[in-house]
């Protein structure tokens, strides 16, 4: 179940849109934040509050990669491997994360501290390679810099 504040937030978002289905995307983000990922319970909560059938909500969410469909680690590393990043060594960084931290694309570390997702272009081609950790932005990545960054997240 969603807590009271989240329910209130959802209802407020609903008011900004002409119909309930239009409010689905932001509503699903709130549910994802509260439940950690879009579990059946998360869809049910959104469906109950917005009055949008849960199958439809799931159909919408699965279209987008930025919704999480399975349990995730506490922090999400989102590394870009698109053209510029790739040329500047992003794939080596993928290997580094795998070998050093046991963090595979789409996987989660055994301690649940990190999950990793490979991103398409995040618009930082001039400062590639780049990544997001949760909502924080990092560019000009090197193995050493990544070590430093990951240390900030528990």
């Amino acid at each position: 179940m969603l807590n009271e504040a989240a329910v209130k937030e959802l209802n407020e978002i609903r008011q900004k849109y002409p119909n309930a289905r239009a409010a689905l995307l932001p509503a699903l983000y709130i549910a994802q934040r509260e439940f950690g990922h879009l579990s059946p319970e998360a869809y049910e909560a959104v469906s109950e509050i917005l009055g949008v059938p849960k199958a439809i909500a799931r159909g919408v969410a699965t279209f987008y990669v930025m919704y999480k469909h399975k349990p995730m680690g506490r922090n999400i590393v989102q590394l870009c491997t698109n053209v510029s990043c790739m040329i500047l060594g992003a794939e080596k960084l993928v290997d580094f994360l795998k070998n050093k931290h046991g963090l595979e694309p789409g996987g989660t570390t055994s301690d649940g501290r990190f999950s990793m997702v490979i991103m398409e272009c995040i618009g930082a081609c001039g400062t590639a390679p780049a990544m997001l950790v949760n909502d924080d932005f990092y560019e000009n990545l090197t193995e050493k810099y990544i070590e430093e960054i990951l240390g900030k997240y528990k």
Binding site: P53, I56, R58
Partner: peptide, 9 residues
């Protein structure tokens, strides 16, 4: 009934 939907992309 809205029981089914297209999922994924």
């Amino acid at each position: 009934a809205s029981a089914i939907a297209i999922i994924n992309r």
